[in-house]
């Protein structure tokens, strides 16, 4: 329990630090976007209004307090260019990112776990010896480049799949769920998901493989053999079950990393998610939107790290009991 509270406190501290870094970054950096924005052909009045609205006419520490207070109320300001609350814009983009992230992670981890367990089981065979360098090479490939190649081949070349966006123009749906389940959406999802999965499968595969190799040497696996249990039971019930713990943690952390790491793939496939939003906001100097998008990504990242910690505690009886005791 104490550890849990410590962990929560630590997470909050980190969150605060990140928020503060962001504040300083956006106010103190050379080429602050405000100048560009205020140089627009706005009237004196409008300019004053915006300055007041963001509290930009006050000293830095006051701005900081206002900033924190706004954040605490979930108030992220209004986009310079879209003239809409940042929160609304983020909430439109976020589901797209989450769906893409989860779909690709699930595919990548299912594949990676099975392939990793298989390679460990067939260790020292030519399959294993060739597969590992290939996996490393695939992991070394920039995601956006993999996306470009897949897009050129399957999107433009063969014309099997659409080349970007989430839905064909003109399609209308009653609800978000219905939209996500539509064939049209899934066809749009296929390529970006595949691109991310190609990159993401490497980690669970390598993790699973090395954990399995380690666990297969553990005495309880030898004992299972002596008991005459079936190979299936030994590999799956005992070895894989133990090797899976760190992989689940990696999955959770992976969700956090991918939400921000998807940026480039979202751009390649014009996927209207948070990452693409961030890139657009940054390039068009839409500072409230960029700040909001970054904060959301960071929040998800930090939260998932926290959950990963907690999950480990829940899933590994050794750790959970040690913490309770």
């Amino acid at each position: 329990m104490r550890q849990f509270l410590e962990r929560v406190l630590h997470t909050l501290l980190v969150l605060w630090a990140v928020v503060t870094i962001l504040f300083l970054m956006f106010r103190l950096m050379p080429g602050s976007p405000l100048a560009a924005y205020l140089n627009d052909n706005l009237s004196e009045e409008q300019q004053q209004l915006i300055l007041q609205q963001f509290g930009l006419d006050r000293p830095l520490y006051e701005q900081y307090v206002i900033y924190l207070a706004n954040l605490a109320r979930g108030e992220l300001g209004v986009s310079f260019f879209q003239r809409r609350p940042v929160v609304d814009i983020l909430m439109e983009a976020f589901p797209n990112t989450i769906v893409l992230t989860l779909a690709s992670l699930v595919v990548a981890y299912i594949f990676g776990v099975i392939a990793g367990a298989f390679l460990a089981w067939r260790r020292d065979t030519w399959i294993e010896k060739t597969a590992v360098p290939i996996v490393l090479a695939v992991r070394a490939a920039p995601e956006f480049w993999v996306g470009m190649v897949l897009l050129a081949v399957f999107g433009f070349g063969l014309g099997w799949l659409p080349s970007g966006g989430t839905n064909s123009p003109g399609a209308a749906y009653d609800s978000e769920i219905e939209r996500f389940l539509s064939l049209d959406f899934l066809r749009h999802l296929a390529l970006p998901m595949l691109t991310l999965a190609v990159y993401l499968q490497g980690l669970p595969l390598l993790l699973m493989r090395s954990n399995m190799l380690e666990v297969m040497h553990d005495e309880f696996v030898t004992m299972a053999r002596m008991k005459g249990l079936s190979e299936w039971s030994i590999v799956i019930r005992h070895a894989a079950r133990n090797a899976l713990l760190p992989v689940l943690t990696a999955f959770t952390i992976g969700v956090g990393i991918s939400v921000g790491g998807n940026v480039v793939v979202e751009v390649v496939f014009s996927w209207p998610g948070i990452g693409r939003l961030l890139v657009r906001a940054v390039s068009s100097l839409d500072y409230p939107l960029a700040q909001g998008a970054f904060l959301l990504i960071a929040l998800v990242f930090i939260t998932m790290n926290f959950i990963a910690d907690m999950l480990y505690v829940l899933l590994d009886p050794r750790v959970s009991h040690a913490r309770v005791a």
Binding site: D218, M226, H238
Partner: peptide
């Protein structure tokens, strides 16, 4: 033929 190992800690599956 059954077996009793030296270290039952490692011979029992922790999970």
């Amino acid at each position: 033929i059954a077996f009793i190992p030296q270290s039952a800690m490692n011979s029992l599956d922790p999970v």
